[in-house]
Computed example of a mutant assay.
Amino acid sequence: MEPSTQYVPEIKLAAAPSQNRMNRAENKEQLKYGEELIRNTAHYIGFKGTEKQITNGLNCQNCHLDGGQKPWGNNYLSVAANYPQIRKRSGKETDVYGRINGCLQRSLNGSPLDSTVKEMKAMAAYILWLGQDVPKGKKAKGSKIYPLAFLDRAADPIAGKPIYESKCASCHQSSGEGFLTPDGRAFTYPPLWGPLSYNDGAGLYRISKFAGYIKMNMPFGVSHKNPQLSDEEAWDLAAYVDSMPRPEKDKTNDWPNIADKPIDHPFGPFADPFPKSQHKYGPFKPIQNWYETQKTK
């Protein structure tokens, strides 16, 4: 299948502040430690962490690429401008510490850190520093994950399996368990499913998020300027990976207003008449159209 032409438009994407600016910052040592923690989280707070043992061994930058700086790599550039904010998933106001703890408990399937802990303060300082140039309430161009257009069909995990085997297994293994570093403390390539991967409450368990993420960043080394996967391949690959077993998160208190749930959040109850399977794999356009129709009534 030929790569899709639905690439990111040629717009100037926001960039992180330079290393020289960090070196001139009064709290440069804290910022450098924060960046180190984002890049090598498992070394410090993974299952064999030197400071704490509270996560599954993934690094924050497994989901937030290049230390949270890469365009369309789920970067952090819009965080400072938009937090604190009321998060619909919790129904409560969340600050940057709460946002980090959400990732620690979901993507890293671990335990939260107190806001007074050195590691938490350093990560928060670094993340906020990255977004210092973005005006309050605005979104940096190319931040977070590229919003991939919905397919006219359901994403197909069966079709995604051979794509995984040809494009992904060399790094993440056919078993999905990734490759540990020689010291056994972290992963050179992270597990995509199984007990040490992200749990089913993580953002990337929504296949729209995972599809947009892998479209612009995978196989490892590609970017929005040279994607290798077509849109359909990205959707099917996301469906395959997110169909595999992984830890379960208690989601009882998520989305207190069920009408706020993203349409690809595959856990009921739902405010619409569509089945769980369609919320998981699609097609999503009929669900989207249903909600649009409700707004006009």
Rank of each mutant, 00 (worst) to 15 (best):
C171V: 00
L237N: 03
G160W: 00
D114L: 13
N59K: 07
F210M: 14
I145G: 12
Y189A: 13
D114K: 14
P256G: 14
P112F: 04
W255L: 11
K144V: 07
W235D: 10
T50Y: 06
K280G: 04
P135Q: 12
R24V: 05
F47L: 11
I258Y: 02
N40S: 12
H172R: 02
L104E: 05
A202F: 01
V134H: 00
Q53A: 10
N40E: 14
K297F: 01
V222W: 03
L31H: 05
S78N: 07
G282T: 06
K297G: 11
Q228T: 06
R99F: 08
D183E: 06
I11H: 00
P9C: 11
P266M: 05
A186F: 05
R206M: 14
P266W: 06
R153S: 13
A140T: 06
G131K: 07
P3R: 15
D254H: 06
A238K: 02
G102M: 01
A271T: 08
K28R: 14
K70D: 15
M244D: 07
E35S: 10
M123T: 12
R246A: 10
K118G: 11
G46L: 08
P227H: 01
L130W: 04
R185V: 15
V79R: 14
K138V: 07
K138R: 15
A234I: 10
D260T: 07
F210C: 01
Y126F: 12
T94A: 09
N257P: 01
A169V: 05
Y83T: 07
A238H: 09
I158E: 13
H224G: 13
L65P: 04
G46S: 09
P84T: 08
K139S: 07
S174Y: 10
N226R: 02
Q288E: 13
S78I: 02
N75Q: 11
A259H: 06
K225L: 15
R185H: 11
Y44I: 01
S208K: 13
P71D: 13
N59F: 05
Y205I: 02
S18Q: 06
E177A: 10
D264I: 10
K48S: 09
N101F: 07
D254L: 07
V241P: 01
A140Y: 08
P190Y: 02
M22F: 00
P283K: 09
L13I: 13
G221M: 05
Q19G: 08
